[in-house]
């Protein structure tokens, strides 16, 4: 089983990104996804910076994948997309169908989590277009994956989001700018003030969602490492970890240890609970509301 680091979903300053990826080059990861997937206005790294980082990570032995933006609206978004699609060096994760169009017929691409693969027939279509790996939607349950994995096209790899705040929604509107009474076109890049997003709670003070520019995330951290054995038996190939500003290195190390059998999945899950700095959840995996935390497999 391989470990993948998803793209950084937040807006971090240039130095922080550089330091983060220098550290990740040494982390026990197999695959690193790079690129700005949330907002085209963010520019602490531009494509040449991502490509330079990609080359460094590749030299450190990582498989590098360039992720495309999820919500593509303007011609300049499309220009960036075309540059990524035609980079000629690194695999691409297509996060909407425009990217799929540009990548189909190439040597292969990753079908991102937002392509809405909910059944085997859709996966078959993407495989025929050249997808070599697919990332399940965050809403996917074990039952849903079971039938898809059982009918998986030849050579297709399955990747599951096992750790991090889940990306739940995208909008035309920037909620971080809105929180500061700023228009999106003059957002003053306020999302840089929130390295793990801006917390939104209910009126009775329960942490609920996280605002991250035009993206909305779960406040609770998806923690599925306790389901490692089930994932293995389904044939899941890759586990995705979503970066956060603190403890990502430790989180990767714990998951690696669990995958290699150094600690039990349940013990790993408990250690991750502490590193997440937020409540955990695993509801989607059990076909329940995503925010639910049901009892973990392996616990009495």
């Amino acid at each position: 089983m391989k470990l993948a680091l998803g793209p950084v979903l937040y807006y971090w300053p240039r130095e922080q990104l550089q330091q983060f990826y220098a550290a990740m080059a040494q982390a026990p990861l197999d695959i690193v996804y790079l690129g700005e997937t949330v907002c085209s206005r963010r520019h602490s790294f531009r494509l040449p910076d991502w490509l330079e980082t990609a080359a460094r990570l590749r030299d450190a032995g990582k498989e590098v994948v360039l992720s495309t933006q999820v919500l593509i609206e303007s011609e300049s978004d499309l220009k960036t997309l075309r540059n990524i699609a035609g980079n000629g060096e690194f695999m691409v994760e297509a996060n909407e169908m425009g990217a799929v169009r540009l990548m189909s017929g190439t040597e292969g691409f990753v079908a991102g989590t937002h392509l809405n693969v909910y059944n085997s027939q859709t996966l078959k279509q993407l495989a025929a277009l050249g997808a070599r790996r697919w990332v399940a939607p965050v809403e996917a349950s074990m039952d849903m994956l079971q039938t898809i994995c059982a009918a998986q096209p030849q050579g297709m790899q399955t990747e599951v989001f096992v750790w991090g705040r889940m990306p739940l929604a995208y909008s035309a509107r920037c909620f971080t700018a809105r929180a500061h009474n700023l228009p999106k076109d003059d957002c003053q890049f306020r999302c840089m003030d929130y390295p793990d997003g801006l917390d939104m709670s209910t009126r009775d003070d329960q942490a609920f969602l996280v605002l991250n520019g035009i993206q909305t995330q779960s406040s609770r951290v998806c923690n599925l490492i306790s389901e490692l054995d089930a994932m293995r038996s389904l044939g899941v190939d890759v586990l995705r970890i979503s970066p956060q500003s603190r403890n990502t290195g430790e989180i990767v190390a714990v998951i690696r240890e669990a995958v290699e059998g150094g600690i039990t999945p349940v013990a790993a899950a408990a250690r991750l609970d502490r590193l997440g700095e937020m409540e955990s959840c695993n509801g989607y995996w059990h076909d329940r509301p995503g925010m639910d935390q049901t009892q973990r497999a392996g616990l009495p």
Partner: peptide
């Protein structure tokens, strides 16, 4: 307000 087809807020809850 969300992109249709890209919103799992309801299932999260």
């Amino acid at each position: 307000v969300m992109v249709e087809g890209r919103c799992a807020l309801s299932s999260y809850v």
